[in-house]
Design a protein around this nucleic acid. Structure first.
Lengths: 252, 252
DNA sequence: CGCATAGTTGACAGCACTCAAATGAGGTGG
DNA sequence: CCACCTCATTTGAGTGCTGTCAACTATGCG
């Protein structure tokens, strides 16, 4: 899917479907147990849950927000997954991040007034909207919340550093192996069988994210499969020997 | 210099020389005009300057702190430059960051109790120490300061993202060109002649930072020089045609 | 069922890595 | 101040991984 198509689809109001406000109660939410937890230090950050004002369905391929657009909300992904990307000078997509169910998106740009990337749904998804203006005010009064956000952001710096190292220092197969291990880890909480899961993103996206070509991703996956470490059928991934996969490729 | 040597030298008390506390006044500091400014949004962050409790000289090759060590202070570099690195499983150095005069170091790990990297002086340097315990308390009472730190950290996430992309997507010469352009930019404020400056780090370090080999750094520099874009004599860099250098290689 | 898109596989070329040797710079002691 | 030593840097030759281009196959959607 190219970005021009995306830019068109955003204008369709059908792209973002509001959910009846009656079911916004976080206490009753089906994912309340692991929502926000993967990144939260637990505690103050759950205050954010009380700031949810709107819930929306966003269909596969539709944009949640655009680079350059005024930043008004943060979002918690209630269901589905979101890809963040920007465009290089020639207009080609560059994937910067993947966000999965239960994760927050949009707090990264807290220090600026506009989004710095495009966010598109990788599958039919559902997001909870947190208006940032009230949040900013909340930050003024709740120092503890502010500190927790600070922790979260600091943690992101470290994660991003780790990615920089992974991507700059290891060969293609190791990058792919670590990508798969990372996905398994992030999906762990909400996946019944930890060793079987579905990648929501295209090979294309993985390639862009890892700084290699799609063909190389394909070959690397084939490589891992030939070694009997994983089993792949299209987007379905099965970890046959997770320990060995980690032992051989995990990047620290 | 390998890390074993470093680990030994840290035990020498001579490595860190305290400066007489009488000259700690930031108002009289020779670098007060650009200290903290490069990253600060200006304003609250300068409060940090009042938290400076100690000033130290740290000689070339000596460690400011070690990975795993309890984190007690943040540091402002008053003079010189600092390299941050960690060790890969085989014990090899991996450079994560360079910090120059006027920049803060140690706030990245604000959410953890220990340092995650080693910090070594690339040249004889001088640092101002900011104890973090009082700072944490300050954060509780000064929401504005906290928000500003939040902005700074968020900004770091973006910078790190940019590095991830640079390092994952461009070829060696482009990485080196961008590294040089970035250094020029960061040194701009305090350098009389913007187009001539001295790199304080070794080719080795640049290589590790950019995810390429030392020999490749060398060849890339040679490459840029052959094109007449820069002039290099050892660590001395001269930008002959900064605009053309940026035009051809700048990564966005 | 058919089309469009996504993913795989193959062939070949080029860039960067590795190993090795030569050159240059910086620091130390006489 | 110079000679020497050590380490940093450059340069060269050869190999291998990954990128590019192209053809083929699989998947998914209407």
């Amino acid at each position: 899917m190219n970005s021009i198509t995306n830019l068109n689809t955003i204008s369709h109001e059908t792209a973002l479907t509001d959910v009846s406000p009656t079911c916004l109660n976080c206490q009753n939410c089906s994912i309340k147990d692991y929502c926000l937890t993967p990144e939260s230090v637990g505690g103050q950050l759950s205050e954010l849950k009380h700031s949810v004002k709107k819930r929306r369905i966003i269909h596969k391929g539709h944009l949640l927000f655009l680079a350059g657009q005024p930043r008004r909300n943060a979002y918690v992904i209630r269901k589905g997954s979101i890809k963040c990307y920007d465009l290089d000078p020639s207009g080609k997509e560059r994937v910067g991040d993947f966000h999965l169910t239960g994760e927050v998106i949009g707090l990264e740009d807290l220090d600026t007034s506009t989004h710095h990337c495009f966010a598109v749904a990788l599958e039919d998804s559902e997001i909870c909207e947190i208006p940032l203006l009230p949040l900013q005010n909340l930050l003024l009064s709740r120092a503890a919340l502010c500190r927790e956000l600070l922790s979260l952001t600091t943690c992101r710096v470290r994660q991003q550093r780790h990615l920089t190292k992974l991507v700059s220092q290891s060969e293609a197969t190791a990058r792919v192996a670590n990508f798969i291990l990372g996905m398994a880890q992030r999906l762990r909480l909400r996946c019944p069988d930890q060793s079987r899961f579905r990648l929501s993103m295209a090979r294309n996206d993985i390639a862009s994210y890892l700084g290699i070509q799609m063909e190389t991703v394909s070959r690397s996956i084939g490589n891992l499969q030939k070694q009997g470490l994983i089993n792949v059928r299209s987007k379905q991934i099965e970890l046959c020997k997770p320990e060995q996969l980690a032992l051989k490729y995990a990047f620290h």
